[in-house]
Design a protein around this nucleic acid. Structure first.
Length: 157
DNA sequence: GCCAACGTTGGC
DNA sequence: GCCAACGTTGGC
C-alpha cells in the first residue's frame, strides 16, 4: 500500500464551505471546478484514496483551516468542464481529451478550534507551508509534520 | 475596496 | 520562446 500523503484545499466558504461538505450525502463531494494546471496535476497525478486533506476557508473571517477530509477517489476527468451550464465551463476540454481533473473527498472532522492563517504564520514549524508562500495555489501539498501540527491545534487547541 | 502576487493569453 | 497585458486570487 502506498504511503499516505497530505494535502490542503481551499474554498471560499460563501461558495462552498466545510459545512456544505458535511451536509452532502456520505459527507462526500467531487472537488470539481479547479482550473489551474499545478492544482490539476496534483489531483490527477498525486492524490490517492486514503490521503488526508486539510480544508481551508479563504476570503473569510478569519481565514483558517476549519477541518479535515479524506481523499476517497483519486484523480479522474472533471466532467463539469464540458458542461456549458457549469460554473467553470472550458470548451477545450472534452470527454475524449479531458484537460481538467477532480478527486472525491469525504469530510472527516470539523475542528473544535479553526487554525487561522495568523496562527500558521506565527508558528515556527508552519512558516514553510505552501499556504504561506504561494497563497494562490488552491490544491497544494502538506508535509506529514505540518499535518500533525495543524490537526493537533485544530482538535485540541 | 484596494492592491500585490501570480497565472494565463496572445502578439510578435 | 519571450514578455506585456490582462484577469484572478485572496489577504488585509
Amino acid at each position: 500500500m502506498a504511503v499516505r500523503k497530505f494535502w490542503l484545499v481551499k474554498s471560499e466558504p460563501e461558495a462552498y464551505s466545510f459545512d456544505d461538505l458535511l451536509s452532502e450525502e456520505d459527507q462526500t463531494a467531487e472537488w470539481d471546478g479547479v482550473r489551474n494546471y499545478t492544482a490539476r496535476n496534483t489531483m490527477r497525478d498525486d492524490m490517492q484514496a486514503g490521503d488526508g486533506v486539510l480544508f481551508y476557508h479563504s476570503n473569510s473571517k478569519p481565514t483558517a483551516v476549519v477541518g479535515y477530509a479524506t481523499v476517497v477517489k483519486s484523480g479522474y476527468p472533471d466532467d463539469t468542464a464540458w458542461d456549458p451550464d457549469s460554473e467553470h465551463p472550458d470548451p477545450r476540454s472534452t470527454p475524449d481529451n479531458p484537460i481538467w481533473y477532480m478527486v472525491d473527498i469525504k469530510a472527516e472532522n470539523k475542528f473544535r478550534s479553526p487554525v487561522t492563517l495568523q496562527q500558521i504564520k506565527a508558528h515556527g514549524d508552519l512558516k514553510d507551508m505552501v499556504l504561506v508562500n504561494n497563497s494562490r495555489l488552491s490544491v497544494q501539498p502538506v508535509t506529514n509534520r505540518e499535518w500533525k501540527i495543524i490537526l493537533t491545534l485544530g482538535m485540541d487547541g
